[in-house]
Design a protein around this nucleic acid. Structure first.
Lengths: 107, 107
DNA sequence: ATAATGCGTAAGGAGATGCTTACATGTCAA
DNA sequence: TTGACATGTAAGCATCTCCTTACGCATTAT
């Protein structure tokens, strides 16, 4: 019944869509440039891009007959925010650094 | 066709499952204690827990007739790792601090 | 004008997901 | 032992997902 709009977490649940976002980190790209990285048909790529678009994770720029897709990284914030409250469980460099910062700025 | 095992990203794509993980942050819980936080039937909760179990995000502890579920936060690492390489896009305290660290450790 | 390019949309199908109710199983309590 | 409790499993159903091929529609090139 899926009455909860898929949203960002749904959008990033598919590995192909995560890879598409990863590609767009290096800059805007037209669909064909994206599609050549995948085995699936080009329409399938279009459909994945649509999911990303609906989630607000990318925008479309029309340039002549091309459509360039652009990453909207801020939209990943819900993911970062959610994962952030698990960070205390990883005792790695990041956690140590953050604690270090908290200390060094609390003065 | 989904030949790519759903994995962690699939497991956290459903809001109910994220909330279940969030509940388990405060400690192990038997199914009923989890289920009372949701409107869905108890079997539905069991099925969600199964997805989390298959993804390795929780483990089961049998205690008499109860089964307590326990969070395995390390399993969220793929999510943290993936999101981490978008962190340069958020110019918040963390990013500034990390850059600060990178500088201060490169000596 | 005609063809080629770039891309979306439509239609359809296989399989996954998410839910329900009914039932099975193991454990504790009287 | 008999029943209540805690939970999983089975079956069934509606819907969603993800893919394909076929087609439509602009835009650019010849």
């Amino acid at each position: 019944m899926m009455h909860t709009e898929p949203g960002v977490f749904g959008a990033i649940s598919h590995p192909a869509r995560r890879r598409m976002l990863d590609l767009l980190v290096d800059g805007d790209r037209p669909v064909n440039a994206i599609a050549e990285n995948f085995e699936m048909s080009r329409p399938a790529v279009s459909q994945h891009l649509r999911v990303l678009l609906d989630a607000g994770l990318v925008t479309e720029q029309r340039h002549g007959r091309e459509r360039r897709y652009r990453l909207v990284p801020e939209r990943l914030e819900p993911v970062r925010d959610w994962i952030a409250h698990y960070e205390r469980f990883w005792d790695d460099n990041f956690a140590r650094l953050r604690r270090h910062l908290e200390k060094s700025t609390e003065q």
